[in-house]
């Protein structure tokens, strides 16, 4: 992720390494052999799998 910046160095836009695949069908995604387009997104998504994956738990609605 890297911010786009205006003339003062302040970020104007936050850009993700993730690619928007929501308009692509799974079949097309599987048959598309151009891994380079997906490389950053894949690394991001699959990298999560090696983390602890601990669910966030603990809300106590006491009142």
């Amino acid at each position: 992720m890297e911010p786009g910046q205006d003339g003062d160095g302040k970020p104007t836009e936050w850009r993700s390494v993730m690619i928007d695949l929501s308009g692509v069908s799974l079949t097309d995604l599987v048959t598309d052999d151009d891994e380079s387009v997906l490389a950053h997104s894949l690394r991001r998504v699959l990298g999560e799998l090696s983390g602890p994956g601990e669910p966030i738990a603990g809300f106590n609605s006491a009142v």
Binding site: P11, W14, R15, I19, D20, V37
Partner: peptide
Amino acid sequence: PQPPPSSFSLGDRAFA
């Protein structure tokens, strides 16, 4: 033809 997928981005105002 469909345009190639693009990266997600969010303007700073929307991000804040």
